[in-house]
Amino acid sequence: MEEFLGLSSRLTGFDIDELREDDLAPELLGVVLEQVGAETYRRLAAAPDARDEELVAVAEALIRLWYTGSWQGSAGGGGPFLVSPRAYAGALVWRAIGGRAPGTSAPGFGSWAEPAEAAGAGAGRRR
């Protein structure tokens, strides 16, 4: 799991501690292993920046998984699918902009009038 978190942190730009917050890693790793197989995953973990076409594709799938909660679709057919409502709610894209996934929280009446939270790299903590 530590290895997966390290790899994920390197690819997504979120610290390992940030990635631990929603405890999504076990679920997401499960999806990766199921979709690409343990062997391919090991190769990516060993060489996250490999230019190998297959590994680049897996790295992108993993980034998308963390950022959106969706797997991009399998080679055997079938389009992108959402892993789970938890993965949707914890998707990093919302944390990147200092917001929340639509429909997952009620930040309060008039909250939408406030200035956007300071967003971007390094400003990952949630309100």
């Binding site: 390197r10 690819l11 997504t12 730009g13 979120f14 920046d49 790295a59 980034i63 950022y67 990093l92 894209v93 990147a96 902009i97 200092g98 956007a116 967003a119 971007g120 790299a121 390094g122 400003a123 990952g124």
Partner: peptide, 15 residues
Amino acid sequence: LRGRELRQAVADRVG
């Protein structure tokens, strides 16, 4: 993009 660069770009693009 990867890592911090990606995170920054996503924040910039979506935000």
